[in-house]
Design a protein around this nucleic acid. Structure first.
Lengths: 229, 229
DNA sequence: CCAAAAGTGTTGGTCTTACACCCATGC
DNA sequence: GCATGGGTGTAAGACCAACACTTTTGG
């Protein structure tokens, strides 16, 4: 595909697009699934909201560019981050030919410190299933991201990246119920989740308004493929 | 991410890579899973084998570029073709910064007419699980493609794209056995596949050396997500 | 003592897997 | 008539979904 020779030979008729990454960042705030948007400042989409993103640096891999963008907007490192899809229709950005590699990220709400950056007019969380009309082809990106996240939560352990380090089984179940939007049987849920052996029960308890609940933590906080539900 | 303004502002420090597609094309020849490779002609990888690919045209979408590459090498149109992953480490091609969007294609062996093209030294089928060392980062691409195809065959109906329009249940089962490399119980396989309602039984029979087998065809030849096995 | 969430097992139904014999044809 | 793949049903076990009551705390 790619030796320098053929680049030279074809470069007149072939495109040489800009390459950007866009990151769809989800979090849970009080069991509401939210998604981070930035407001575009300039160009024909000025005023519209979009997923944060930016050009890939000359010495950067795509993953690094996505990590950097995630870090710059939220201050979060080591969250779950996965390449989603690459969008490249010539007309997706009317201003220029741009290919966008989209990423999906899951972050724990508590750890986020939003950072607007001068290139955007604003930044903020929006309910994930009620996003406004977005700039570029980002409506499509958002639909795909939501679909992927919903399905992936069921066969990978990536919830760990949405939760703080300690949580109750009730909270964990609430996460699944929110994202899959259906309710789950408590006894079956606990049986299944505990049988996976992913959690350790801590000594502590969460004391709330009522009976205290045992706190749990993930034994390993890295992505693994497995049947969750 | 991508208004023209920020392109101008950042273009000194940001990359402006070449964008290429690479297509991993699988087929079945007498129940051997094979993969199409081309031999690189020039550059530091000259003589090595790689997946066919090329730069994305100025007016082309990524999907169109992949379709075109598939058609140019094999003469096949309307085969199953899916975006796989985008590779973009700065060092993946030492000659230049190139981002490669990889695709996965499944083609019926009977319909292929291989077309070498002058940009390659050679073209040919190789056993999919015994590929030689490939150029660029294509070893990684190949591993990912094989994994994706194996898993996707189990939850989508994409086998239709590996088979001719008429086939026996025995042939269909052989395809699954080859790709998943494990043997399946014939009675259970037939029960499950027929229960899906994807196949129509034709009047005809295949007459071979022994008892004739009923021929089947897919009712719909387009990708659908569903439990296959 | 009341409200609210935590914690805990059993059962019936469904789905999956394992398994063996007869059939139709070509040679 | 024999070798070869085609065609078919059943039974046991695994897995999953449905279901209700008691416990612990705060107010």
């Amino acid at each position: 595909m790619s030796q320098a020779e053929s680049y030279r030979r074809f470069s007149d008729t072939q495109a040489h697009p800009w390459v950007a990454v866009d990151v769809v960042i989800y979090t849970l705030d009080q069991s509401r699934l939210e998604c981070l948007l930035v407001q575009v400042k300039e160009g024909s989409f000025a005023g519209k909201w979009a997923f944060p993103g930016g050009l890939v640096g000359a010495q950067e891999s795509l993953d690094q560019a996505a990590e950097r963008e995630l870090y710059e907007r939220t201050g979060v490192k080591n969250a779950y981050l996965e390449q989603l899809y690459t969008f490249g229709k010539p007309e997706r950005d009317p201003a220029t030919r741009a290919v966008s590699v989209s990423y999906l990220a899951l972050v724990p709400y508590q750890e986020v410190k939003l950072n607007p950056a001068s290139k955007y007019a604003a930044i903020g969380w929006f309910p994930a299933n009620r996003l406004p009309r977005l700039a570029y082809d980002h409506d499509q990106v958002g639909r795909l991201a939501l679909k992927r996240m919903r399905s992936k939560l069921q066969y990978a352990n990536i919830v760990y990246s949405l939760l703080p380090s300690e949580f109750t089984l009730g909270e964990l179940q609430e996460v699944y119920e929110t994202i899959l939007h259906r309710s789950l049987d408590r006894r079956n849920f606990r049986k299944k989740i505990l049988a996976l052996g992913l959690l350790k029960r801590l000594r502590k308890k969460r004391r709330g308004t009522h009976r205290p609940a045992a706190l749990y933590a993930f034994i390993k906080r890295r992505p693994m493929i497995m049947e969750m539900l």
